[in-house]
Design a protein around this nucleic acid. Structure first.
Lengths: 229, 229
DNA sequence: ATGAAAAATATTGTATACCAGATACGGTCT
DNA sequence: AGACCGTATCTGGTATACAATATTTTTCAT
């Protein structure tokens, strides 16, 4: 039988409206700058349905997920509101992040190849060249990307999943946390030390460095972010 | 005005059918012994609706949550299946647990009162008296309770929330992980060391002890739990 | 004009009807 | 008899209708 190749793509059958709505809503919340506006932000369910072009059911199921993950809060017969984390909750998130990333770094010393660690270093060098004093905003992105790279390199799916949601909130307040240039500079130095420890494959050292580096941020939030409450 | 107490309970108005269904389903999944049966376990949506006495909508919303949390997997037009974690996923869960509980222990050394640490010790003593060689199953429960107590004492809501879901899976394979008496005995000794370190408020030491103790379990699963896949 | 009561409105929670795809079974053609 | 196709049925996905309640507006009596 003359079967010629037809090159059909697998057509993503897994993407239901619910899944798409979830992705769209989460993306929208991530980008909206939760902590910029002073007032509570309310989401109109019907309006969202119309915007997404689907009925309430998939939107509601997506909302239920976002509520469980702490992004929104649904008050019966009142509305759905975007959640603003309190200072304490932010600190808890940073603390969990510190615990997970330090474990990720430990895993890297045990499992990563030399090439993978070299990739991390090159990524880091690119970042530190890019944004120094001038573009703090860009550097803030690079900063988070550095940490995400470490977590990704650990090759632990679960740590990646958990921290992904944390970073959505962390990113939202990133602008404030790097307001002082000192932090940016110290940050680069500490990152260099972390890379060095990874290259030496010193598990205990790199774990301590990563943990303390991130807990520094927690302490900084504790001191300077009273406006959150 | 003569207002006498009437002792009416707050009648949880916040508990919607969706919430109740979520709790009921999660509880059922937790207790069903996921890894006992060899075959895939399928849940019938409409059957569950009838059993719970509600319509499909709240059950479906609850299912969406459970799917996001990794307890079930919904295949369109096929059915909803209870998820069996692979060996690798179990090890990842134990690894995350190790990271979070060691951080929790660190927090205890910084924030807990002497009385709280004493409570932990008494709890531990009660456990070790209770189940020794004979009732390994009970000891396994006590074992997990010990770890949960540490996490609870850290007073970090987020760590509590994350580990709660992990423990549902961990508990499901606990019976296997304590099959060797050595593990139970070694476990008690290590727990004693952890308590001692907490009393000395030695953050670095207790962090290391908790981490290594839990990572021991990860290594044990790696070696002896091939049957999971 | 003002206050309260009542009705209209808005919004989420729930139930149900319908849709589309996947499987199993049975019939038909070879 | 066996391969193949159509249909019947079962399943989860989606849309919509209905219910319950908080809010806002309207209305009417004082």
């Amino acid at each position: 039988m003359n079967t010629m190749k037809f090159a059909v793509e697998p057509l993503d059958t897994g993407a239901s409206f619910k899944t798409k709505a979830y992705a769209a809503l989460k993306s929208a919340i991530s980008q909206m700058g939760i902590y910029d506006h002073p007032s509570e932000i309310r989401l109109d369910e019907r309006q969202l349905c119309e915007a997404l072009g689907v009925s309430r059911t998939p939107v509601r199921e997506a909302m239920a997920l976002l509520e469980r993950e702490g992004f929104v809060r649904s008050v019966p017969r009142r509305g759905i509101f975007v959640v603003r984390k309190t200072k304490r909750e932010i600190i808890e998130m940073v603390t969990v992040w510190a615990a997970l990333e330090s474990m990720a770094a430990r895993l890297i010393t045990q499992r990563a190849t030399d090439a993978e660690i070299r990739d991390l270093e090159e990524l880091f060098l690119g970042f530190s060249d890019a944004g120094l004093d001038e573009h703090l905003d860009e550097y803030s992105d690079a900063n988070i990307q550095f940490h995400q790279s470490i977590i990704r390199s650990s090759d632990c799916t679960l740590i990646n999943e958990i921290t992904e949601n944390l970073f959505v909130h962390i990113r939202a307040i990133r602008k404030i946390t790097i307001q002082q240039n000192d932090r940016a500079h110290r940050s680069i130095v500490q990152h260099q030390h972390i890379i060095d420890a990874l290259k030496k494959r010193d598990a205990d050292l790199v774990e301590r460095l990563v943990r303390d580096h991130t807990l520094d941020l927690a302490a900084h939030v504790e001191k300077h972010c009273d406006f959150l409450d």
